[in-house]
Design a protein around this nucleic acid. Structure first.
Length: 572
DNA sequence: GCCGTTTTCGGCCCGACTGTTTTCAGTCG
């Protein structure tokens, strides 16, 4: 049982406590402890063994005992008892927007409804609207939320959310009276999937309502969920919900910080303000006498609270305050730091462009080197390359390198990792590549031990340069196979193998939450687009965005290195 | 259930919006 497992159980206990009507602050204590555990980089078993759990802020005597019980026995009596009380379906009802713990409890206890299906039926029979405190509107909204959930569109991939948000931003910026406007919310924090869009604008007082009207009336809107004087909320054709807030320009920095979140980060920020005798909300920072402390931008706001500027990507209350206080915030990697693009498929396997086309496109993007990595022979479904194909591709690459100036094409391969953890070609052929990405594409159903052993063996192979998309997840579509990632990271550190942060918006694997652990072990991360076309090369940018969320600095990223440095890494 | 320059009890972040009320609880971010 690792720290994340315990954190997840604590999160669930918090939810269960809210649902069973326990003291809400007790629930919050579990939540806080869960987050504290998630952001600690210490090994939880060591903390238990050395009796150091009390050093973690948010963990007192009671929760320390629970953690010891969980780590040593694998279960927790209090948790089991709570789970016993609350049906799984009730937890799912809680995920519907508009229904929080109080109302779900009423639905469960007063209507005897224990899952979403029963709830839908109860709504159809008008039984929800008949409950005290509920009404026809609420019932209709619940039905809408159920329908939305059935379509599976309550979360969205980063690139789709980004595209939708940028189009709204453009619309908002075009309105008269708008002074500043920006994308806020989880998209600004570069989360890998997005719930809804938050757009913030500042404007003159007289222009506000016109801006909000333009927003809710635009052609992309299919449903207006809320339409107030400063906030409004709509559903777009794409199935994404979007919120627009309009504030005065003096309020803008405070509102931007506020609506960027995360909620957890904001809570700490306000708590710090309060400790300093100040009050922070989305409109300003105020002294006790009500006098406001003006800030022109977010940097000023953080400074006023005694902190350096914390980039949006880091605002998750996962250690950024500690780092900020010690002045150890990372200098996050940027697109300008990227010198090479690795993991690119050509039309020899399942890509659509030739080496030469890709090389020209990569050169136009300003990189020094391009690493071709088609599928290996076991990947029949993707047109994996036979030995002859490989040698033919090497000739092709040599000839493009001779013709093209300003960029170097590298000979790579995305070798399937076989079931037993081997690579796909013999050592002689493998030694002819400039680099080898080892990835799992088959037998995804292994248990954690089998899958981990398989990956460790692939990492041990002397030809492996980079471990590709280490969990195989497809965001919003498929869970990754279970892996003991801490062990994989440690092994990569020992073997000098890089780990891929696959920049495809469908993968973003390695998860950003593990990037910090990797850099603490000095494991280098390769931010690779896994491109199957010229357009796909640009996904590198999405990988950089999410890598920043994982605290990555330039020196942590393999493809920020010069060509010579990259070759040296791959050859060692 | 945690925590302490309001320190062993009594707090625990803040405000907009909605829908149901008839002054406010619940939810959300």
């Amino acid at each position: 049982m690792n720290a994340t497992d315990v954190a997840n159980i604590f999160e669930e206990i918090a939810t269960l406590l809210e649902l069973t009507g326990a003291n809400p602050f007790r629930a919050r204590a579990y939540q806080n402890a869960g987050r504290a555990l998630e952001s600690t980089t210490e090994d939880i078993e060591a903390l238990v063994r050395e009796d150091r759990l009390g050093e973690v802020s948010g963990i007192g005597k009671g929760l320390a005992a629970s953690i010891v019980e969980l780590v040593t026995t694998g279960s927790l009596k209090d948790y089991d008892e709570l789970r016993e009380k609350v049906p799984d379906g009730v937890l799912e009802i809680l995920e519907l927007p508009g229904l929080g713990p109080k109302r779900v409890r009423r639905i469960w206890e007063d209507l005897g409804v224990t899952n979403i299906g029963e709830l839908e039926y109860a709504c159809r029979e008008n039984r929800l609207a008949a409950l005290d405190g509920f009404g026809a509107k609420t019932q209709a909204n619940v039905l809408k939320a159920i329908a939305f959930r059935m379509q599976g569109r309550d979360r969205h991939l980063y690139h789709r959310a980004r595209a939708a948000a940028e189009s709204i931003l453009e619309l908002v910026r075009a309105q008269s009276g708008v002074i500043r406007a920006e994308i806020a919310g989880s998209l600004r924090r570069h989360r890998e999937t997005i719930g809804d869009l938050d757009i913030l604008a500042s404007a003159t007082d007289d222009a506000r309502s016109g801006i909000i009207d333009a927003f809710v009336q635009n052609d992309d809107v299919v449903d207006v969920i809320a339409h107030g004087s400063t906030k409004s909320s709509v559903r777009l054709k794409s199935g994404i919900n979007a919120d627009l807030r309009v504030v005065s320009d003096e309020e803008y920095p405070f509102a931007l910080a506020y609506f960027t979140g995360s909620k957890e980060h904001n809570t700490v920020l306000r708590g710090r303000a309060k400790r300093d005798g100040l009050k922070l909300n989305e409109y300003g920072l105020f002294r006790e006498n009500g006098e406001s402390i003006p800030c022109e931008d977010e940097s000023n706001l953080y400074r006023a609270l005694g902190l350096p500027y914390i980039p949006p990507e880091l605002r998750e209350d996962m250690g950024e305050f500690d780092a900020a206080e010690r002045n150890e915030l990372p200098q996050l990697v940027t697109m300008d730091d990227i010198r090479g693009i690795l993991h690119v498929h050509t039309n020899r396997s399942d890509g659509i462009n030739t080496v030469e086309q890709l090389a020209n496109a990569a050169r136009a993007l300003g990189v020094e080197y391009l690493g071709i990595a088609d599928h290996s022979r076991s990947a029949f479904y993707a047109g994996g390359l036979s030995e002859d194909d490989v040698r033919a591709q090497w000739d092709e690459i040599d000839s493009v390198n001779e013709q093209l100036d300003g960029i170097t094409i590298l000979k790579g391969i995305e070798s399937d990792i076989t079931s037993d953890g081997g690579l796909d070609y013999d050592d002689e052929l493998l030694s002819g590549f400039d680099f080898v990405i080892a990835s799992v594409h088959s037998r995804l159903g292994m248990n954690e031990q089998e899958a981990t052993t398989r990956l460790l063996r692939a990492v041990d192979h002397p030809a492996t340069t980079i471990l590709g998309h280490p969990t195989g997840r497809l965001l919003l579509a498929r869970e990754g196979y279970p892996v003991d990632m801490a062990r994989v990271i440690e092994r990569c550190a020992e073997r000098g193998v890089a780990i891929e942060l696959n920049a495809s918006p469908h993968r973003l694997d390695l998860d950003w939450r593990w990037c910090r652990r990797a850099r603490e072990h000095s494991v280098v991360i390769a931010i690779n687009p896994d491109a199957h076309s010229i357009d796909g090369l640009r996904d590198t940018e999405i990988g950089v965005a999410v890598g920043r969320k994982g605290w990555l600095e330039r020196s942590d990223v393999l493809n920020t290195r010069t060509l010579d440095e990259f070759r040296a890494f791959a050859n060692k």
